[in-house]
Write a protein that binds this DNA or RNA. Structure first.
Lengths: 129, 129
DNA sequence: GACACAGTCAAGTGGTCGCTTGAGTTTCGC
DNA sequence: GCGAAACTCAAGCGACCACTTGACTGTGTC
């Protein structure tokens, strides 16, 4: 069990690497063995295994060994976690902007120009006494 | 100008850190100065500035200096980029699963059991001769 | 003009990352 | 049984990361 912050740490960190995103893109098209995943990549098999371990620790990939072959597949839940974090922040920002727009459109209000630095209604929000 | 892969590298790397995600969450609620952002955090101001630089390099934050105060704000486009990458992979995986489900449901088909290792219809996709 | 505020810059440090190499181990096909 | 295939493990290495400290620069206030 790991909380949401740890989960996000692992997921975003895992996806911050191009090789690992490539592995995810490949696995989205269907499961594959470690050797199949490593074949097109310009690095050692051991390196690919390490990348897979990062993805598996993040929960993005799960794998199962049968005989001498380890088969890997996507587990999409962590992707959803990252996606909804991003979506929540973005929509939060958009609704704030909308509210700000409504405020500016209200009659008798003097809207700031483009030369004015960007400032919200709650600039000193977290400021202590 | 930087291509999508570089953009994703920077965005996911920037969001892989808890402190930086915290800065984003704060900035979603409205713009703030560097000192305001640093005040509640248990680290030096210089460290916060470094985090902000990472976010700004990723394009997630933009900032403007007026007088001696630098005011930071969210720029949501990179968040969208990350969000849609995640969404595309996830939906890609889901549609593949749907197709697989339809295949299994088709009459006369012998579906694999739970004890069978996970395998798609295209396991040997990238395998060379 | 003196002083403090808000930030900037540069150097340094311990830790982690991505990758390699080399030496196992287990399993499959003959 | 024997050799090849498919990993697995561990050590090592250069680069990068998060953070600190200390010196410095521009800006507002008295």
């Amino acid at each position: 069990m790991l909380n949401e912050e740890e989960q996000l740490d692992l997921v975003f960190r895992a996806l911050a690497d191009r090789t690992r995103r490539g592995l995810v893109e490949r696995l989205v098209r269907g499961p594959a063995s470690v050797s199949e995943l490593a074949a097109p990549l310009p690095m050692s098999l051991a390196a690919v295994v390490q990348h897979l371990r990062v993805l598996e620790t993040a929960g993005i990939v799960r794998s199962e060994k049968v005989g001498r072959v380890r088969t890997c597949a996507i587990a999409p839940d962590p992707l959803r976690t990252g996606e909804s974090w991003l979506s929540d922040r973005r929509t939060g920002w958009e609704t704030r902007l909308d509210a700000l727009g409504a405020l500016i459109d209200s009659p008798g209000h003097n809207p700031p120009g483009q030369d004015t630095p960007v400032r919200g209604p709650n600039t000193v929000e977290g400021t202590p006494s």
